[in-house]
């Protein structure tokens, strides 16, 4: 079972910065990217995609309520209800995972997003001992992308 490397992880960093730039016109700033060891970072609103096929694991995008609301407003969506805050974090996770197929190929099968609010731990049984965590800031609000991905081959 081959482990993914730094180049693979960079795909997700580029994908999430591109998302913000494309949708809002303002790139997100990557504050830090690291191998998480203990408790995985997470904020209030989380969207998670599971991987299957030639890979296994998950990726999640987790944002503060302020960031999720500001993203909606940047997209000129005035409805910042709880359901739309959940919807946008699920859509970001879906886009990051889908874009990763350009690098990993169609063998990276992705699920539809599941979303959660609050303190419930998004990733209870990580595939990797140390998933990648990418912390970012955009318009003075915070989010994190956690990549837990392994090659099945």
């Amino acid at each position: 079972m081959a482990d993914i490397n730094e180049t693979d992880a960079r795909v997700f960093i580029e994908s999430v910065t591109h998302y913000f730039e494309q949708i809002t016109g303002h790139a997100a700033e990557i504050r830090t990217a690291y191998l998480a060891s203990n408790k995985l970072p997470q904020f209030e609103y989380t969207g998670l995609i599971d991987f299957s096929g030639q890979f296994r694991g998950s990726v999640y995008f987790s944002a503060t309520s302020m960031m999720a609301a500001r993203m909606l407003l940047a997209m000129r969506e005035s409805d910042t209800s709880n359901s739309n805050l959940l919807d946008i974090v699920g859509e970001v996770a879906n886009t990051i995972a889908g874009n990763a197929r350009k690098h990993f190929g169609a063998g990276l099968e992705i699920s539809t997003p599941t979303t959660s609010f609050g303190n419930r731990v998004a990733l209870t049984s990580p595939t990797r001992a140390r998933p990648f965590a990418i912390e970012l800031q955009w318009q003075q609000s915070e989010a994190v992308v956690v990549v837990d991905l392994e090659n099945n081959i």
Binding site: Q22, N94, T95, I96, G98, K102
Partner: peptide
């Protein structure tokens, strides 16, 4: 209009009869 940005997926959609492909995220 999809985030699935690999060539195989785009070709599959076009082969089935789709007439265009726009990647997410889009402006």
């Amino acid at each position: 209009i999809s985030a699935l940005s690999d060539r195989t997926t785009a070709l599959q959609a076009l082969k089935l009869g789709a007439r265009g492909f726009l990647n997410k995220p889009f402006s």
